[in-house]
Measured scan of single mutants.
Amino acid sequence: MTFKAIINGKTLKGETTTEAVDAATAEKVFKQYFNDNGLDGEWTYDDATKTFTVTE
């Protein structure tokens, strides 16, 4: 399945996608990506659209 992340950061904005077997796996991938890029913020997840949003 394809999962999307919308990034609303102070220094980084945009979208990225990942292929994962479930939402928990996708969340781990996205959180690692955000940690690697120095992002920290509020997380939400919309199961209907398979979209994570992080707002810094």
Rank of each mutant, 00 (worst) to 15 (best):
M1D: 09
M1V: 12
M1L: 13
T2D: 04
F3S: 01
F3A: 02
F3T: 01
K4H: 12
A5H: 02
A5L: 15
I6R: 04
I7Q: 03
N8W: 13
N8T: 06
N8V: 13
N8Q: 12
G9N: 06
G9W: 13
K10L: 14
K10Q: 12
T11I: 11
T11R: 06
L12A: 07
L12Q: 12
L12R: 05
L12N: 10
L12F: 15
L12G: 10
L12K: 07
L12V: 12
K13N: 09
G14E: 07
G14W: 15
E15W: 14
E15G: 05
E15D: 05
E15T: 11
E15V: 10
T16F: 15
T16D: 02
T17K: 07
T17M: 07
T17Y: 14
T18H: 05
T18I: 14
T18F: 15
T18P: 01
E19K: 12
E19C: 15
E19Y: 14
E19P: 03
A20D: 01
A20E: 03
A20N: 03
A20Q: 06
A20T: 04
A20R: 02
A20M: 02
A20W: 02
V21I: 12
V21W: 10
D22C: 03
D22N: 07
A23M: 09
A23R: 12
A23H: 07
A24F: 09
A24W: 09
T25Y: 05
T25E: 12
T25R: 05
T25M: 11
T25L: 05
A26P: 00
E27W: 14
E27G: 06
E27I: 12
K28C: 07
K28Y: 07
K28W: 08
V29P: 01
V29F: 15
V29L: 11
F30G: 00
F30L: 09
F30S: 00
F30P: 01
K31W: 04
K31S: 04
Q32C: 06
Q32K: 13
Y33S: 04
F34E: 00
F34I: 11
F34N: 01
F34W: 07
F34D: 01
N35P: 03
N35S: 13
N35D: 08
D36E: 13
G38F: 10
G38M: 09
L39F: 15
L39A: 05
D40K: 13
D40F: 14
D40Q: 13
G41M: 14
G41R: 06
G41D: 02
G41K: 05
E42W: 09
E42D: 12
E42I: 14
E42T: 12
W43H: 01
W43A: 01
W43Q: 01
T44I: 08
T44W: 07
T44Y: 10
Y45K: 01
D46I: 02
D47H: 08
D47T: 06
A48N: 12
A48H: 09
A48D: 12
A48W: 06
T49L: 05
K50L: 10
K50C: 05
K50D: 01
T51V: 05
F52E: 00
F52M: 01
T53W: 11
T53Q: 05
T53E: 05
T53S: 05
V54C: 05
V54H: 05
V54R: 04
T55P: 02
T55F: 10
T55V: 10
T55K: 07
T55N: 08
E56Q: 12
E56C: 12
E56P: 12
